[in-house]
Computed example of a mutant assay.
Amino acid sequence: MRKIFIFIVAIFFAACGGEDKVPIEVSISERYNPILHRNVKYLNITSLVDSVKITNIIPNRGKCKVGGVLDKNGIKIDKTLSYSQTWDYIPLSNCNKILEVKVETDHGDWTFSFN
């Protein structure tokens, strides 16, 4: 259901935005992490264009954090995806519910809402 919603939102932005087409699709999944011995949330980011560079991810307007090295050292993301390539992003921590994710790319900044 979420993927259908995201697809509809992407189509809406593409139709209303003229040349500013949404370059990515974002969904959330939850799966078991054997290192942490519990289920964790992941962002699944898929490229809808030939090439897109992801430079930052801000979940819940900065109210929750992304896991790993990025939070500890303030390191920016530098991930490039080609068309149809999906990146399962680092587990999200301190997030009981993800309502919104802002993804900054070389094609502009895009905010995705989840209810």
Rank of each mutant, 00 (worst) to 15 (best):
P34Y: 13
I57V: 14
R61G: 14
N56T: 06
N39V: 13
K65D: 07
Y32K: 10
V49M: 04
G68F: 08
L48F: 03
K65Q: 12
R61M: 13
N56D: 08
P34M: 09
L70Q: 12
L48Q: 03
Y42H: 07
K72D: 08
N60D: 04
V66A: 04
I35Y: 06
Y32D: 04
L70V: 15
V49C: 10
D71T: 09
N39L: 10
N39Y: 09
V66G: 00
T55R: 11
K63G: 12
G67Y: 00
G62W: 06
I45S: 03
L36F: 10
I54W: 03
L70E: 02
P59M: 00
K72Y: 06
G62A: 05
G68Q: 01
P34D: 11
I57K: 09
N60A: 14
T55C: 07
I35P: 01
G62D: 01
G68N: 02
R31K: 14
G68M: 14
V49D: 01
S51M: 09
N73G: 07
N39E: 02
N39G: 06
L70A: 09
T55E: 13
N33L: 04
L48A: 15
S51T: 07
N44V: 14
V66S: 10
K53E: 15
Y42R: 15
K63V: 15
T46S: 09
V40A: 05
V40F: 02
V52T: 05
V40D: 03
I57L: 14
K53D: 11
T55G: 06
R61S: 08
R31H: 06
G68H: 05
V49F: 03
S51W: 03
Y42G: 14
N33Y: 00
S47R: 12
V69T: 07
H37K: 14
R61Q: 03
N60Y: 05
S47G: 04
K63M: 15
I35W: 04
C64W: 01
P59V: 12
C64S: 11
H37M: 13
N73E: 09
K53F: 09
V52D: 01
S47Y: 13
T46K: 10
K65F: 06
I35L: 04
I35N: 13
S51A: 06
V40E: 12
G67A: 08
N44T: 04
V69D: 09
D50F: 10
K41N: 00
P59I: 12
V69L: 09
